[in-house]
Design a protein around this nucleic acid. Structure first.
Ligand SMILES: [Mn+2]
Ligand SMILES: [Mn+2]
Ligand SMILES: [Zn+2]
Ligand SMILES: [Zn+2]
Lengths: 143, 143
DNA sequence: TCAGGAATGATAATCATTATCATATTGCAA
DNA sequence: TTGCAATATGATAATGATTATCATTCCTGA
């Protein structure tokens, strides 16, 4: 992959000194849409949902998602089929995914919080979110 | 995505009753190649490495990697650029990845083992491996 | 009000991965 | 052994999610 970046990413969407980041119209709509969804969604699925209410270009959605990730407001996860799913950062959901049929079942426990806090301090890295996923074969596919 | 499957996946590569799974020539070479690499590799990188020694088609490599995943011998991880990296299942390596520049630094700790064992028992799911990755912004990009 | 920068949308291009399909190998029954 | 059907392999075309382009519109501050 490795394609040239369009331009300097606007990390500085946040006015200096302001505590709340300034969001563009597109970013705001995307964030709103995501926050009203209980399930992670692909960019294209989002596009399908949003184009009815507030028409918005697919490219804008991708750009907004990138920006929101960089702001720590949105997180992502990649499915076995290569789609990227996005969700608002709040609760963290993890999954148990079957390599054969692709079914994903949620896992409620998460033992990562502690380690995350520890890393946060030890490394010079601002951590926004984490992914944790288990892969294996479900019983139906075991047969 | 969601493309039709080529044919029935050969989950039954393992002769009934045998404890060691039978690997095809391609699968064996791919596994060997991976086991000699300290770093996770993409399918195409593997192809580059292998084509010198034992010529092998790229499609065969992808097929072998899928089969080896299903056998619990190989694990995968998807980078921010959408490449899938494969490695032999032995130690589990986890990463801290910068959403801005894409740099990944290894994390040595892993608090997941225990939960994995627990899930293994509770769910009717055979777990082969897990991914754990932290996303944020590195200090260089923070500026 | 006006110029420069940022945001947006439509659309073309990219490229890792899959699907196809023709050919080569393998496993096994007769 | 031999012949055959099933499986594996390679070359190559197709797919499709994501990116890059670029023309246009929207803001914002001087
Ligand atoms: Mn978690
Ligand atoms: Mn681990
Ligand atoms: Zn399954
Ligand atoms: Zn960085």
């Amino acid at each position: 992959m490795i394609l040239k970046k369009d331009a300097e990413n606007s990390v500085e969407a946040t006015p200096k000194g302001s505590t709340k980041p300034h969001l563009t119209a597109g970013q705001q709509s995307v964030l709103d849409a995501l926050q009203h969804q209980p399930q992670p969604l692909s960019a294209q699925a989002l596009h399908g949902l949003m184009r009815c209410q507030q028409p918005i270009g697919l490219a804008t959605i991708y750009r907004a998602l990138d920006a929101l990730k960089l702001l720590g407001l949105v997180q992502h996860r990649v499915t076995l089929t290569g789609e990227t799913l996005y969700s608002a950062v709040k609760h963290d959901h993890h999954y148990l995914t079957c390599l054969q049929c692709g079914v994903s079942v949620p896992v409620d426990t998460c033992p990562v919080k502690e380690l995350e806090a520890h890393l946060q301090g030890a490394r010079s890295f601002r951590i926004y979110y984490h992914t944790l996923e288990f892969f294996g074969v479900c019983d139906r596919c075991e047969a």
